[in-house]
């Protein structure tokens, strides 16, 4: 079965899976170069997790989420490029040689085919299992941020546990939202820190990223 809004699905040059920053950029660049592109995404609005719902949310909470988030609108705008079809709420569940890509929207499945396929399905942070990690109310830092971005819900009296820049970003956004975490438990040990010191010179070479962090 083919989606009704596709005139001829067999005549597609490229299928991109995932409408986050990478998928949107790949689909747009290809379409601007004249390729016929199908962009499949599981969410209702483009943006992935980084730019989650940015088209709708940038105006409402752009100040809280910061200029790096709002900048995502530049990418979502370009999805209107002719030749690019963005299919929303599409869960891709099979890829076969060809490439034949099967996906579902609601309870209906569809098949599209193209000689080129780009998987930009994104990432999830690596959780740190410890007793109690499946208790309701425990969630990933990404989940806490998705709640702020998409739904305007900021965790009250949270404890953030782990390491890495996302945790600090969530802490600063919760603080800006007026509900700072009770504690941020950094799990990086002193020896982790010492081991990573040898990368300092390399890190300084890309100082813009450091400043952003």
């Amino acid at each position: 079965m083919f989606p009704a809004d596709m005139p001829d699905d067999r005549d597609v040059d490229l299928i991109v899976v995932g409408a986050g920053p990478a998928g949107m950029a790949a689909a747009t660049v290809a379409a601007e170069a004249g390729a016929k592109v199908i962009l499949l995404d599981e969410q209702g609005l483009a943006g992935g997790q980084i730019y989650r719902d940015v088209e709708r949310v940038a105006e409402v909470r752009g100040d809280l989420l910061g200029p790096d988030y709002v900048a995502g609108r530049e990418l979502t705008k370009r999805l209107a490029t002719p030749g690019l079809t963005h299919i929303r709420n599409a869960a891709v569940w099979m890829v076969e040689l060809g490439y034949r890509v099967t996906y579902s929207v609601g309870q209906t499945s569809y098949l599209v085919q193209a000689p080129h396929l780009i998987l930009a399905s994104g990432a999830i942070e690596r959780p740190m299992p410890l007793p109690g990690w499946t208790l309701p109310g425990v969630m990933t830092a990404g989940a806490a941020q998705i709640l702020i971005k998409q739904s305007g819900l900021a965790l009250k009296r949270s404890v953030l546990v782990g390491s890495g820049p996302l945790l600090y970003l969530v802490a600063s956004q919760l603080t800006r939202a007026g509900t700072p975490p009770i504690a941020l438990l950094e799990t990086q040990t002193r020896s982790d820190f010492l081991v990573s010191l040898r990368h300092v010179v390399g890190a300084l070479r890309d100082w813009r990223y450091l400043v952003k962090g």
Partner: peptide, 21 residues
């Protein structure tokens, strides 16, 4: 916060990743 109960252990579970994974 509890959205389901594990079929084996009966322990409660809630939204964890919020990104469909």
């Amino acid at each position: 916060s509890s959205l389901r109960w594990n079929a084996v252990s009966g322990s409660p579970r809630g939204a964890y990743c919020l990104m469909g994974a």
